[in-house]
């Protein structure tokens, strides 16, 4: 590692060919190993990932029996995962009789320390958010990270109304008056406000799209 400008002896052509051959062989073997592992683990990784989102969605939509994934691309909704992995996703959950229980979407926002990523459930018929779950965050342990566990805080999301005229916003702990407001956690106001902003932005973007396609989603097409 610590090569202090070594004076290299001049290379002969034979040496050069040997070097290229060796590097070629090593690269080939390495590539082969990687491809074998990739192929071998592909299905397990896919299963894991699917189970993870399925479990998160089921947690937000209790009683869900069937799930349909929609991807959002260029303001349009299409069924299935889609080829664009960066596209936003909507997970629609149905109960045993095929009735739409609700939709689960992902949202993210800058928190106190880093990005907070979360999932929330939205009921288009009631026009309100019915659940919220943090997926990833680096908020301060013991303070900001309560947004994932604090019972009183999570109570906010049992019925949080989406009203186009009133933005969803986090207010000081105990100051909640309207059902589009979120009671912040005292001592974690910044993290709570980030949650409010994330939901507000995401729902404002998604709600019109959902409204337009509601018939399709209800039938699971």
């Amino acid at each position: 590692m610590n090569s202090q400008a070594p004076s290299r002896p001049p290379l002969s052509t034979a040496d050069g060919i040997k070097m290229v051959r060796l590097l070629g062989t090593v690269s080939f073997v390495c590539g082969l190993l990687i491809v074998i592992t990739h192929r071998g683990t592909l299905s397990a990784i896919g299963r894991n990932q699917e189970r993870l989102t399925r479990e998160a969605v089921a947690e937000l939509l209790p009683g869900m029996q069937r799930q349909v994934v929609y991807s959002v691309h260029g303001g349009e909704l299409s069924k299935g995962e889609g080829s664009d992995r960066l596209a936003g996703k909507i997970y629609a959950g149905y109960d045993a009789s095929g009735k739409l229980l609700g939709l689960v979407m992902e949202a993210s926002e800058r928190g106190y320390a880093d990005m907070i990523k979360a999932m929330y459930a939205y009921s288009p018929s009631k026009r309100c958010i019915t659940g919220f779950k943090v997926l990833e965050m680096k908020e301060t342990p013991g303070l900001g990270d309560k947004i994932a566990t604090d019972k009183n805080f999570l109570e906010n999301f049992k019925q949080l109304v989406y009203d186009p005229d009133h933005p969803i916003v986090a207010v000081k702990a105990g100051a909640k008056k309207n059902n589009w407001e979120i009671d912040a956690i005292s001592g974690a106001t910044i993290s709570s406000r980030a949650v409010g902003r994330m939901l507000n932005r995401s729902i404002r973007e998604m709600a019109p799209l959902i409204e337009r396609n509601l018939r399709r989603i209800e039938k699971g097409e």
């Binding site: 590692m1 090569s3 290299r8 290379l11 070097m19 060796l22 590097l23 090593v26 690269s27 390495c30 190993l33 990687i34 592992t37 990739h38 683990t41 397990a44 990784i45 894991n48």
Partner: peptide, 24 residues
């Protein structure tokens, strides 16, 4: 001359493998 390059190539291979194994 290509010692370090070869080593890094080999190490990177096994790191990729372990990356996929943990994900699985």
């Amino acid at each position: 001359q290509v010692r370090i390059a070869t080593y890094i190539l080999i190490i990177a291979t096994f790191v990729t493998i372990v990356d996929y194994l943990i994900k699985a």
